Amino acid sequence: MDLKTILLPERTLRCASCQSKKRTIEELSKIFSETLAGPSEHEIFDAFIERERLGSTGLGDGIGIPHCRLAACKQPTGVLLLLETPIDFDSLDKQKVDLVFALIVPQEANDEHLDILATIAGKFSSPEFRDKLRSTTTDSELFRAITD
């Protein structure tokens, strides 16, 4: 899967304001609601929090992949944040998270949801890939680094 199909430059950001997991999910919800027709910021936030209650989406190695399904979502959509200050994300390895790739998919897209998550997790499993993203200094560099 090509991440360019779900990620846009305006949804790829270096973020200094996210100082906690809740604040990060709020920021993600705001970005999604501003760039998607349909779901509200509140709807998106609630869906992410509901999913987090099932278990943390902190993968380890400083990576968080919050994700959810929403009926109001028409196509899979992603947001990538590189946090200036790593945050506690309840990861199994107890490492703080600084790379957050959030994903929203349509309610009925079960198989596609799992395929996209597998693609994202596979990319982020590479230390070289993570280092490449972390070494960027601008939003546009971050977008190019994840989509090249």
Rank of each mutant, 00 (worst) to 15 (best):
M1V: 12
D2Y: 08
I6A: 02
L7V: 00
L7P: 02
L7W: 00
L8R: 03
L8Y: 00
P9M: 10
P9N: 07
P9S: 08
E10T: 05
R11D: 00
T12N: 01
C15D: 14
A16F: 11
C18N: 05
C18F: 06
Q19T: 14
Q19F: 12
K21Y: 00
K21M: 03
K22Q: 14
K22N: 12
T24C: 12
T24D: 04
T24Q: 02
E26S: 07
E26Y: 11
E27Y: 15
I31Y: 02
S33G: 06
L36V: 04
A37D: 14
G38N: 07
P39Y: 03
S40C: 08
S40H: 06
E43V: 10
E43A: 13
I44D: 05
I49F: 03
I49M: 08
I49Q: 09
E50K: 15
E50P: 05
R51W: 07
L54H: 12
L59E: 07
G60M: 06
G60P: 08
G64Y: 05
I65D: 04
L70V: 13
L70Q: 08
A72R: 09
C73T: 14
Q75R: 14
Q75N: 07
Q75S: 14
P76D: 09
V79Y: 01
L80P: 02
L80A: 03
E84T: 15
P86D: 04
P86C: 03
D90Q: 13
D90M: 05
L92C: 04
L92P: 06
K94S: 14
Q95E: 15
K96Q: 15
K96S: 12
K96F: 05
D98A: 02
L99K: 03
A102M: 05
V105Y: 03
V105T: 15
V105A: 15
E108L: 11
A109I: 07
N110M: 10
D111V: 15
E112Q: 14
H113V: 12
H113G: 09
L117T: 11
I120W: 07
I120K: 07
I120N: 08
I120Q: 09
A121C: 11
A121E: 11
G122P: 11
G122N: 15
K123E: 06
S125W: 09
S126G: 08
P127W: 10
E128D: 12
R130F: 11
R130C: 13
R130P: 10
K132L: 13
S135L: 09
T137Y: 06
T138P: 02
T138M: 09
D139M: 07
R144E: 15
A145N: 06
T147W: 00
T147V: 01
D148R: 09
